[in-house]
Amino acid sequence: MLSNRSISLLPAIALCTTLASAQQQNSIGIFVARNDALPGAPKLGGLAFTSYTGPLGLRLSGGLHVTQDGNFGEERPPKLGVGAWTADADVVLAPFRTVPILTMLLAGFSPNAFVGIGGHGVQGTSDTSIATWSYGAGVTRSLLSVLGVEASARYRMPLRDNQVLPAGFKTEWEYRAGITIGFGNRPSSSSRRSASSARVERTRRDTRNSSGIPRSTPAPANSASAARVIDTADDYLGTRYRYGGTSPTTGFDCSGFVQHVYARHDLKLPRTSRQMASAGSSVTPRVSALRTGDLMFFAQNGSTVDHVAIYAGGNRIIHSSSSGAGVRYDDLDSRRGEYFVTHLIAARRVLGAERALVAAFGAELGKTLVTDLDPPDRAPAP
């Protein structure tokens, strides 16, 4: 018969099933752990698979403690065995992972909380195992575009109420630390096609009047400043792309180019696209809402900003693109443009009345936060 605790976990199990059917952003991790709830507090090594949909995720993990009977080099080869094991299925809540600005303010760290069911046991002269439920908290941090680190603490308890624990078993903590590798961080192909078609069609509709004739972007009050910014950006057409680059001599990455262009107009922006995504004022990420000189931010791996471009008006962007071999214009109605429209997630206005705020905030942010450099973009070749 199921206990009250088991019944209370049924909604979590149902949520796990729902999340598994809507996987969008995945990672696989390798971890080491110490389980104080098992006899002798063994150290384990294991694997974890996590799939997120927005801030909610499903994580499946398992670990083993390997024993060795004998030594290498002896006449009889050593015998390896399993001394202890753990297995868990968790529902994870990571509220900051879909809000890049909050993660950025925590120096790139994203906290999470989780609850799950599983089991653990020991093997030896007598094999003993029990079913458990657990809860805990952890933190992750991205190091590169797909590589990250994580750490967590989990409190384990027997799944059945009033269970008498086997000798040596405890209600105690388990601690983990490991690395993660992200993969498959894109919507399904059907979702990409439908989103792409809808957004490209909206872009085309937004840039035409009722007669079907293309119309120009409305001129903002600071159009002269915007025009000068685009003229400056135009000066660097053909400058080669360079990862981490900030110089017209050696090359630009996407944010290095934007930062350099605006610096020539006495506007100091933060160093990376993720940092820039908090500068200025927010604009609806739709082409019809943009003004010349606005910044457009793209997420190629789900929800994390990793590319920035300047809106040049007339349905075009200018940026330093690895797939485009350097600084270039891209038409948002083209095949390449469709890629960027599909991955557009934010826009910011940094020209005009917000100038002083951008300069002050950008300067302070650049001093206090260190974030990853922007990765190369993966747009189709021109």
Rank of each mutant, 00 (worst) to 15 (best):
L2K: 14
T18W: 00
L19N: 05
V32Q: 14
V32C: 07
P39H: 04
P42L: 01
S51I: 02
S51N: 06
S51H: 11
Y52T: 03
L56I: 06
L58R: 02
R59F: 00
H65M: 02
T67D: 05
Q68H: 03
R76S: 10
A84P: 15
W85K: 14
L93K: 07
F96L: 03
L106N: 15
G108L: 01
N112K: 01
A113M: 14
I117L: 11
G118K: 02
H120C: 05
D127K: 14
D127L: 09
A131I: 04
S134R: 15
A137R: 10
A137G: 13
L144E: 07
L144N: 08
G148Y: 08
V149N: 04
E150A: 06
A151Y: 12
S152L: 04
R156Y: 09
P158K: 12
L159K: 12
L165C: 09
G168I: 02
E174P: 12
Y175N: 06
Y175G: 11
R176W: 05
T180L: 06
T180N: 04
T180W: 04
G182M: 00
S188T: 08
R193M: 06
A195S: 13
R199W: 01
R202D: 10
D206I: 07
T207I: 09
N209D: 08
I213C: 03
A221M: 06
S223K: 13
A224W: 11
R228P: 15
D234T: 15
Y236H: 14
G238K: 12
G238S: 10
T239K: 13
S247M: 06
Q259D: 02
H260N: 14
H265N: 03
R271E: 02
S273N: 07
R274N: 14
Q275V: 13
A279M: 08
S282H: 13
T284K: 07
M296K: 08
F297S: 07
A299Y: 11
N301R: 11
S303C: 05
I310H: 04
Y311P: 01
G314V: 05
R316M: 13
S321G: 10
Y329V: 05
D330C: 13
D331V: 15
L332H: 02
R335D: 05
R335W: 07
T342F: 07
A347R: 03
R348M: 05
L351F: 03
L351Q: 09
L357V: 15
G362Q: 01
D372C: 08
P376D: 08
D377S: 06
A379F: 12
